[in-house]
């Protein structure tokens, strides 16, 4: 019974996924290019063009100072800044620094958590985008065992 329910939910979700109009808050094609860039600067340019950027204490980046396992590094980013459109995570020393980008709608708080892989010790940047400005804060994270090797 429970399995059937789950199945139905999956099917319903998938139907939704395919029928849903893509909401182009930012074009997916642009994002693809940003994920392929190999420097943090290039990722920022690809994502935000020439939007002015400033360091801000209003952006909170929670991440361990020392990550014992680079394969699983918990990250939380939140802010009280009004009008947030997106939150991104950039890991400077990863082969492709852009790790994740979240599009924030009006019905959610600018508060996201996930887990990322880090190949080695690196500066990690939280990037908060509003309509006319980018706010960032960054932390140095020391990685004991890298999470990208094979």
């Amino acid at each position: 019974m429970e399995n059937k329910m789950k199945r139905r939910n999956i099917l319903k979700g998938l139907a939704l996924l395919s029928s849903m109009a893509l909401i182009p808050v930012r074009m997916f094609a642009d994002m693809q290019a940003a994920f392929k860039t190999v420097t943090p600067e290039a990722a920022l340019t690809e994502l935000f063009g020439n939007l002015p950027m400033e360091q801000s204490d209003a952006v909170t980046l929670k991440i361990p100072d020392i990550a014992e396992n680079g394969a699983v590094v918990p990250v939380t980013i939140f802010t009280d800044i009004e009008g947030v459109e997106s939150i991104s995570i950039i890991i400077d020393q990863n082969p492709n620094p852009l790790s994740a980008s979240f599009t924030i709608g009006n019905e959610v708080f600018a508060d996201v958590s996930t887990r990322v892989k880090m190949g080695k010790s690196s500066r990690v940047r939280a990037i908060v985008q509003t309509a006319d400005k980018i706010y960032t804060t960054s932390r140095e994270v020391k990685v004991t065992i890298g999470g990208c090797g094979g």
Partner: peptide, 18 residues
């Protein structure tokens, strides 16, 4: 209400909170 774009450097079996 929100969406996310990820690269391969999000950890295996992703966790996501909002």
């Amino acid at each position: 209400i929100m969406s996310a774009q990820w690269g391969p450097s999000v950890s295996k079996n992703p966790y996501f909170a909002f």
